[in-house]
Design a protein around this nucleic acid. Structure first.
Lengths: 120, 120
DNA sequence: AAGGATACTTGCGGATTGCAAGTAATAAAG
DNA sequence: CTTTATTACTTGCAATCCGCAAGTATCCTT
């Protein structure tokens, strides 16, 4: 569980955002959260098939980055519920822009059922 | 020259966009293009310091993906100029959203000189 | 023609990825 | 109460990818 306080490559806001979000999986987990997913299995069950070790690491990184927070389930069972923080919800426009671009320029893409317009 | 032909993980437009853009460097190269950068030197000289082998591969991938195109420089010299295609320019809102999020939520970030508002 | 700049390519050690399998803690079934 | 299933991860490991340094090819000035 290395939390090495990953160093910032530059003061550029885009570079800084990519230090946290810049990989093939992180924004997909965020997409699932915007779709309404809350639990580990919601993310692991997405059609892209994220490896579980990657998922666990990305969830921890997003928590460390203040984008999501995890809390115990209300029924006292073991599973955790992951929810977007205000900072995480502020990523809505990023995901909406990516989705719109993909829909417009990548043939054969379509929004998955359950993914709403991405604006809260 | 590795022929990309990278397979699509799902028909989700976000996943599809990340198949092309989902890493720590690609969107930084795009940022430089939106700033007005055109040449290899412009990208390699950015403060994040992209390794040159990564840069060459990303440029080739972006050309293959139809996001940029390379042509002979306007001034008649031999080096190549990389420019955004229409598809590439359509990524403006993605970069603008990332920049705005970084500025709002990551302390100490600031837009770099030369980077305009991101809208044409 | 020599020296420098530009645009890459190559090599290599180490980090990261993805797949499979394992594990611990409930939960459900018998 | 014991067995079996489910959930949420962790671990091991081969393959891939990354970043750094160095090298190469081409043009560009002098």
């Amino acid at each position: 569980m290395t939390t090495p306080a990953r160093s910032r490559r530059s003061p550029c806001p885009v570079a800084c955002a990519l230090d946290l979000l810049g990989d093939r999986w992180t924004l997909l987990v965020l997409r699932d959260l915007f779709r309404g997913g809350e639990r580990y299995r919601d993310f692991a069950g997405s059609p892209e098939g994220i490896p579980t070790n990657i998922l666990a690491e990305r969830l921890a990184r997003l928590v460390a980055g203040g984008v999501i927070e995890s809390s115990a389930a209300a029924d006292g069972s073991r599973h955790r519920a992951y929810r977007l923080t205000t900072k995480g919800r502020a990523l809505g426009p990023v995901l909406a822009a990516l989705r719109d671009w993909g829909l417009a320029w990548e043939k054969g893409t379509r929004v998955m059922p359950g993914l709403s317009a991405g604006r809260e």
